[in-house]
Design a protein around this nucleic acid. Structure first.
Length: 379
DNA sequence: AAATCGGGGTA
DNA sequence: TACCCAGATTT
């Protein structure tokens, strides 16, 4: 990673100091009038900013706000987060996705307590040592909470800068990000670095959007080559994503006479680690390993809970749910069955009822599978 | 450098 | 559908 000075020398821009100052003024004047009012902007507390930045990774502002409010009320400071239970932090994150974010955040909270005496580190370099804080988030916290002159290069800034200078390099490449960072070190306002970053993000989110809807309202029009040439839609240059693979799963909705249902906690190495779902298994294993009337055989092998008892579950297909991840698609058949009273449970399996649902955080996929049952039940 | 990791909102 | 969203970590 090159230093700030090396980046500036490697990627100099042709603008005069006068033009650069005019750019900063146009941007910050717009921000002072049109900037969004958001919960985490009520103060400059680094913890508040940190929590919001982690939640906002690959997640839209509108989605984050209610999660942020609840998280800050429940775990209002670093010490509280460091001490919280796994169930609690996952429950606070339930439905938000990318669950390693909150696990990493708790690890970082513990690092702050032990390595930094409970005080938030103030430089980008120190922030980068914390788990879950990468180049963007380190710069965001350093600038917004501590006034450090560090550009926070997120998707908004990538889009704006590539348009301003008509940079057509592939923005998924590390070298292109270095180039954009070098340019931004020259543009960023040293007197208001945090506001500069947030102004750029607000502008990207509301005016200079991917679909380019309100480009005429941009305060940066006169600085924007893509606007002057009508080429904004070409930026940023990003290769197309590969199609995600579809996988077929079976989920087992199994109840007992107490009105409880069976759930299994996903283990390390599995998707949705730590979260609770109906026990699930890939249907391929079923096809390979069992005949048509022994659908539960792979379930037996995988979880060792039903050995020799497959025919006692009275399994029947109840419904189907589709769930889309960023990198794969799950088609899930739900099989319903009942549990023999004398059969013990295997590892990672528990009986759960409504009173204990909050102790068993689950994904949106599981939420859909619940909903499917409720919908059917009302018919 | 490329793959992994959620989920929701749009066109 | 396909793309985007205040990305970071692992392979």
């Amino acid at each position: 990673m090159k230093t700030r000075q090396e980046l500036i020398e490697t990627y100099p821009i042709s603008w005069s100091q006068t033009k650069i100052k005019a750019f900063r003024k146009a941007l910050l004047n717009w921000y002072d009038q049109m900037g969004r009012s958001l919960p985490w902007r009520e103060n400059q507390d680094p913890y508040s900013i940190w929590v919001s930045e982690i939640m906002l990774q690959q997640t839209q502002v509108k989605t984050v706000i209610p999660y942020y409010q609840r998280f800050m009320t429940t775990l209002p400071n670093v010490a509280a987060l460091a001490k919280a239970s796994e169930e609690q932090i996952l429950s606070l994150w339930q439905g938000l996705g990318y669950y390693s974010r909150v696990r990493n955040m708790q690890t970082a909270a513990q690092e702050i307590v032990t390595n930094f005496d409970g005080q938030f580190p103030q430089t980008k370099a120190e922030l980068l040592t914390l788990k879950g804080i990468g180049d963007y988030t380190a710069a965001a916290i350093a600038s917004m909470a501590f006034g450090q002159v560090e550009p926070a290069l997120d998707g908004n800034l990538i889009r704006i800068v590539t348009r301003l200078f008509e940079i057509d390099h592939d923005v998924t490449k590390a070298k292109t990000k270095q180039e954009l960072l070098g340019i931004l070190y020259q543009l960023i306002d040293p007197d208001r670095p945090g506001d500069f970053n947030q102004a750029m993000m607000d502008l990207g989110a509301t005016v200079m959007t991917p679909d380019n809807l309100n480009i005429n309202a941009s305060p940066l029009k006169e600085f924007d080559l893509s606007y002057q040439h009508g080429t904004a839609k070409n930026y940023p240059n990003k290769p197309k994503k590969k199609k995600s693979k579809s996988q077929h799963f079976l989920a087992y909705y199994i109840s007992n006479e107490k009105g409880q249902w069976l759930m299994r906690q996903h283990q390390e190495g599995e998707l949705l680690q730590g979260l609770w779902h109906y026990p699930m298994v890939e249907a391929d294993l079923v096809i390979e390993a069992a005949s048509q009337d022994e659908l539960s055989q792979p379930f037996i092998e995988k979880y060792h809970v039903l050995e020799g008892q497959a025919d006692r579950l009275n399994l029947a297909v109840r419904g189907h749910v589709k769930h889309v991840f960023s990198h794969r698609i799950w088609q899930v058949d739900i099989l319903e069955g009942t549990w023999p009273k004398d059969l013990p449970l295997g590892d990672n399996l528990e009986w759960v009822d409504l009173d204990h649902l909050s102790d068993h955080p689950h994904s949106s996929l599981q939420e859909k599978m619940y909903q499917y049952n409720f919908d059917l039940g009302e018919e």
